[in-house]
Each structure stands twice: as structure tokens, then as C-alpha cells.
Design a protein around this nucleic acid. Sequence first.
DNA 1: GGCTGCCAACTGCTATGGCAGTTGTCCATG
DNA 2: CATGGACAACTGCCATAGCAGTTGGCAGCC
Lengths: 237, 237
Amino acid sequence: MAAGRTAPGRLAPLAEEDTLSLGERAYRRLRESIVQGRLPAGRKISERSIAGELGISAQPVREALRRLEQDGMVVTLPRRGTVVAEMGPAQLGELGRIRAALEGVACALAAERMDAESLAAIAAVLKRMKSGTDAADHDTIDEANEEFHALIHRATGNLFLIRSLASLRAYDNLGRHRAVGSTPRDLPKALVEHRGIVAALKKRDPALAEARMRHHILRSLVTNGVLPAPERKPRRP
Amino acid sequence: MAAGRTAPGRLAPLAEEDTLSLGERAYRRLRESIVQGRLPAGRKISERSIAGELGISAQPVREALRRLEQDGMVVTLPRRGTVVAEMGPAQLGELGRIRAALEGVACALAAERMDAESLAAIAAVLKRMKSGTDAADHDTIDEANEEFHALIHRATGNLFLIRSLASLRAYDNLGRHRAVGSTPRDLPKALVEHRGIVAALKKRDPALAEARMRHHILRSLVTNGVLPAPERKPRRP
DNA sequence: GGCTGCCAACTGCTATGGCAGTTGTCCATG
DNA sequence: CATGGACAACTGCCATAGCAGTTGGCAGCC
């Protein structure tokens, strides 16, 4: 990590060279720290202490905390303090189901309006996924996967969707980071699912694209242990 | 409106008696003003001028604007200004589809965990809807409708879902306010749909509840003119 | 007349200081 | 030893002031 030699749970001062506002940078830093588990649930966050660690004033930190609160990542009790929100497995599962639905809608919108350039790009990503899967190279798979979904999100052109999904994918990362050790993934299954999604996008079939994407997300959540395995449909017991 | 005699587009000062933070109150005020169309799209919003109108400092206003920006209701260009976001009919339609999906997930979650008390409450709301529909009383219908969905949202116990849907329903209101005059509504159809949703909730059938809720939202968006009528499925043209 | 350059009036952004409410600690009291 | 109360050290919250970048207009020049 770029954090370097910092005490666990502490943040390195912000670099000066950046062009973003301090509030924005503080928001991203805090968000990243929470997602990566460096700021665990229940940890107290005070505006002043964070400001001190980041080497900035308390005001931008306060803005960042308000935004994180709207994301649901922290909760603040007036005049008492702000703490990182608790995220039980049940709530993580709910967020996963929400994300599945939103990714589905995004995929449907993308199927309607994705241009040829983006389609070519996503086909290229698919190839990288294939080679990465063959080599069992998790880094390139993760990277390609990230780009895969990002391309679809961007194709929707819908800011609300993009933001919401970014927030939800952050929780997904949290779920992964929580499970120490190997995170199980059914790579070949994911590959064929991705191919099916791209095929639906190329056919410009919104309903099919949505169904496939949603199923893909839900299945991956199940194999990751975030969601329980769905019960088999009983044919009248 | 409680706004009273204020110049169009201007905001009345905040009351003192409230217990909420100034930032929170400013957020709600601005949000309400945007939703009701009092602050039309493209209108410039400066921290200082709003602060002056509300009789508070610029800092809480700034927080409110950052939160509204995360909601997608305003966009701010650094060092240049903040304006109310443009919302074309296309984007409004997209948000409607997103909302339909999220309301569906919320309804599924509610079907799994709604307690008897809430089920009784929602049954009562249904009765009010029935009488309101018979009397063609739009006010009580709107009120009951609001409560209907709020009960379902609350039953999920998911803050992210509740917040997102609140934001999306705000846009829905904006769509209504935009269409001056009579907003078409198929009241009897809505009533039977609501009944079907409640039936699914009582049966604790998440999939059915989700499908019915989603269809209900999508249909209402179509009759409101937010979404185009879906094309009939061609059986191979 | 049309163009350039400057200046004033904005804008968002951040730091500082201080207020009011909360919490924890330590001492005096029963 | 246990209990209650005051004080200090927090907390979030807000107002003020000032910085730096942007914009609009007006004078001066070509």
C-alpha cells in the first residue's frame, strides 16, 4: 500500500501536489480506509483528530464525514461523536441484493445505448479476462473485472447510477477484505457469464442483459459467501 | 405553502425553534425547493446568497450543497459556481427505472421480514386508499400512497435503501410538478396493484412481491408520461 | 468599431476561533 | 468502601475572515 510506515489505523498526511479539493481528498481517503478495513467498524472518528493526521483543517474533514454519513459508512451522534458504521453479514447481503438490481438496470440501459467503441473496449476486456483466467492471475482478473463493470456503468451516462454503484461496490470490497485468506471465486463460471452479458449487449437486448447481469452478481455473491445459497424451487412439497 | 410572501426563487429564513442542525435544515430546505421547482434547473446557487436568505452562515449551506451534489441534484464547478442540475425527460425516465428496481428489492426484503404490526398498518392504509379512490380525493390518496411506500421502506430496515428511494421519489415529485395541470393517474388500476402487493407481502413471497411492486412503479411511470409505453412483444416480425 | 488588458466583484474553498453539549475522572462527602 | 458532584477534556457545530481562482465590464489602444 502507498500508506507506508504509518501506525495502524492512522492516515498519512495528504500530498500537496493534487488538484482536488481537500474535502474531496479527505472523503476518498476516509472511504478507502474504511473499505480496506483500516478503520474498522465501531472506530471513533473525530473531526479534529483526523484533521490533525491529514494535516488539514477540521472543516473539510467535517464535509467528508457528512458525505460518508449519507453513504451509510459512518454514523454520528450529535455532540457525542462519529463512528464507523457496523456492517453485519445480513446487511452486507442486503446491499448485495440491491447492487444486483442496480447493476441489472445499468446493464439494461447500457444495452440500449452503448456505442461501438465501448463495445469494442468491453470485448477487449473480455479477452484479458480469458487470458487471466487461463493463467489464474487474480490481479489482472480483478483489474479486468473492475473495468468491465466500469465500462457498463459509464455507458449508462447516469450519474446517480454510477455513484450508487460505486458506493455499493465499495461495500463489496469490504466483504472481501473481511474474509481473511482465500476468497473463493468460480473463475470459469464468471467468464462464461461475462461473455453472455456482452452477447446480450451486442444484441441490444435490455431485458436479457439485465437478467444475465443480475444473475451474475447474485451468483458471485453466493460463491463469495455474502449471500446464502438459494433454495431449490419446491414443486409443491 | 409555508413559504409565505417570499420573492419567487427566494427562501424564507430558517425558524429558530427547531432542534436539527442548521446544515441538516438547509439541506432539507434546498432539496424541497428544488423538488417543488421553486429553484428551477440551471439556477445559480451561491453559498453566500443562500446563507443570507436563510439567515445563517455559509458553512452549513456549503455542507448542504455538497450533500445535494452527491444526490445529483446540483452540480458545482470549482471556483465558478453551483447550479441546479438539469433533468431532461430522458434522465427522469432512467431514474424512474432505477427507482422501480429499488422499490422491487425493498418490497422483496419487506416480504421477508415485515412484522404483523406493519402488515396491519399497511392494510389500514389500503382501506384509506379504497375510500379515497371511491371519493376521488386526490389528497388522501397521495397521502396514503406516500405512507404505503414509506411503510415498506421502513420494514426493510436498510438505511441505504431508504435514503436512495427518498432521493428518487423526490425526482418523481419533480416530474409531477413539471407537468402543469392535471397529472393523469389510473386510480382503480393502482388500487388493485397495491392490493396485489399487500397480498404478496402477507404470503411472504419475496419474488412475487418484487415483481408486482416493480410492475406497479413502471406502469405508473408510463401513465404519468415519464416513461414511454412498452412495445408489444413481437412474435418474430 | 473591434480588440486587448486590467480591475472590481464575484465564486468556492479553507483556516481559525469559539460556543454548547457530552463524557470521564478525581476529589470530597456520606 | 461506595456515592455524588464539580471540573477538565473531549465532542460536533457554527460564524468569521481571508485566500485564490473566475467572470464581467469598462477603459484604452489599434
